[in-house]
Design a binder for these strands. Sequence first.
DNA 1: TATGAATGAGCGTTCATTCAT
DNA 2: CATGAATGAACGCTCATTCAT
Lengths: 195, 195, 195, 195
Amino acid sequence: MNKQETILQSAIRMFTEKGVDKTTISDIVKDAGVAQGTFYLYYPSKLSLMPAIAEVMVKATLDEVITAVDPAVSLRTQLAQFVDAIFRVSRDHHEIQAMIYAGLASSEHLREWESVYAPVYEWVSRLIETGREHGDFRTDSSPDQLAKLIIALTESAAEQIYLYDVETDQENRAAIQKEETVKFLAYALGLPADD
Amino acid sequence: MNKQETILQSAIRMFTEKGVDKTTISDIVKDAGVAQGTFYLYYPSKLSLMPAIAEVMVKATLDEVITAVDPAVSLRTQLAQFVDAIFRVSRDHHEIQAMIYAGLASSEHLREWESVYAPVYEWVSRLIETGREHGDFRTDSSPDQLAKLIIALTESAAEQIYLYDVETDQENRAAIQKEETVKFLAYALGLPADD
Amino acid sequence: MNKQETILQSAIRMFTEKGVDKTTISDIVKDAGVAQGTFYLYYPSKLSLMPAIAEVMVKATLDEVITAVDPAVSLRTQLAQFVDAIFRVSRDHHEIQAMIYAGLASSEHLREWESVYAPVYEWVSRLIETGREHGDFRTDSSPDQLAKLIIALTESAAEQIYLYDVETDQENRAAIQKEETVKFLAYALGLPADD
Amino acid sequence: MNKQETILQSAIRMFTEKGVDKTTISDIVKDAGVAQGTFYLYYPSKLSLMPAIAEVMVKATLDEVITAVDPAVSLRTQLAQFVDAIFRVSRDHHEIQAMIYAGLASSEHLREWESVYAPVYEWVSRLIETGREHGDFRTDSSPDQLAKLIIALTESAAEQIYLYDVETDQENRAAIQKEETVKFLAYALGLPADD
DNA sequence: TATGAATGAGCGTTCATTCAT
DNA sequence: CATGAATGAACGCTCATTCAT
């Protein structure tokens, strides 16, 4: 792994452990085992790491989703698998997600965000199109629009559980929230219940 | 307005204008017209302002919602009014919302967040209960659960429009997103279409 | 002496001892016995000290000149006293003079320089005007023009001796250079020799 | 042009463009199109370039003077041509001159300065000697002494115009200053007016 | 209560210098 | 000879925090 990659990995680790604001470049380079100046060979500032990190996160999300969702099962089950995957990503990376939401917001790298996140939208869009070919889902909204709202709902539902530090009974609350989210989505999409 | 309140208002203004990280206590006290030391009479640190700010925001949200939603009209219309209100709050205060999401996350004041936000959840919960008394909404989920997801979806949908700087055609995209969100919610809640 | 004045004095001392470039703000505040941050309460940067230092230098120059020149003696003698004073200032402060010449040049504070130095030009101008009232000095150049060249010549002659580190026989070479400068000036100004 | 020479030329260009302090070795090697390490094959530090640069400058000055001054014309005119040449050099290279004056001063390479500048002194000295053979110039000062003061006056007069950024009406003020300088010199040297 | 001058630890950043290739 | 990635000491500067008034 080259030094640029090492720095990026260390940045993700440090941001996750202590938050973006409280992470110093000194923390990152110490963790990465490189000199202070080496950081600046690859990134002009701390915030300029954000797009690269977002990219890593999106890739991780997409990988998780693709691995988790089995195209052979019913759409309702696929939806459950999707929700499960998003909740898992949120649980494992909620610090980074908070960082992306607000950290990116305060940087000048926001423009890049939409394009970085595009693959996830596209994946969900295609899921809907495929479903429609089998006669599933309501058809009075475009796949792109539905994809946006599906993702908005699912990530936001996951964050309600994982973004905040209240860890009491977390997995139990997560299970309920997941089940409710799937049901909510099924209704919202006009998906008939499994029989 | 006493000095504590003045400081809080200045903090909100400064945070909104230049972001939380880039706002210094010096900025706040200058804007408030008080001395540097006075800040510390009321708040031990910059982050300790967060719960108070969150409270103000939640109150603003609730006021907006209560004002906008007319209990006399159809539930579908009330839903549309609710979505409209949330989008408006997001448009006007997206900086603060990003701040609350991630700014709070990095502080030690997170515990207070849930209790601060509770009134909004309760308001939506009561909306559902009232609807049920008239035979509306599906009943296979608890009002509290539905409230959570309604809020999650609506705020997240609004943020997709307003959190990012792409201001091209913003209000047009917002109109479409609002309409789709209402439709999505109506399906998700088992609400019959207006007739 | 207040802290601002203390910092200024320390800056002059440090600049004189080790040169402007090699003097760090840390050097200055250590010498002044104040905290690092205190510096920035009064000066936004190292270069912003320059106009203040220039002012001190000009005042020192003017004091030296006014003290040294006796209006009661012949103009030729007054000229010698003036040259003597300028050489003395150069000897004692040549580091600062080099600093002002080039240090100011690299800053954005250059505009202020002319106004700061104005009193010296004016003093020499008045010397010429007074001389003319007694029928001395050639009259085919304006006092202001002559003042500029008198100062240019005298300071530059002094710097040839003192700006560079060659200290061998310095005072002897200075004596010769002073005498020649006075003679040069006397001719240049159309001043008759003492009789 | 070999790499050593390329580096020197780039250093002069960079120093002129952005000042000595703000020019980094990285700037120089980038401009020169050589690697960072190559610099150190030829110069041990940034300041060690100074004597070489001074030499180039002095050569440029001498070339300008020799080209400009026509030995066939009257001494008064030659003086005007000389003043003109010095003003031109100052206008085109005032950044480097400031650099040499104070930049050299802060280095350990000062000893070399006098010897580097010697050819200019000698040229002026010879001008005076030649003039004397024709019965011109006063003879109560040595040519070497006069040369020093002539150069001191002329360069300093030029700097009063060009060292500072006030560019309003610069060429007009330069013309007046040049004329006055020639007149001043003519008197100072006991040179009869052209007839 | 209220002030604001003073603090100083610690930050991001620069850049002259080295050395394995 | 030439390279340029890597170094890390040292810099200017910020700003939350304190405390004598």
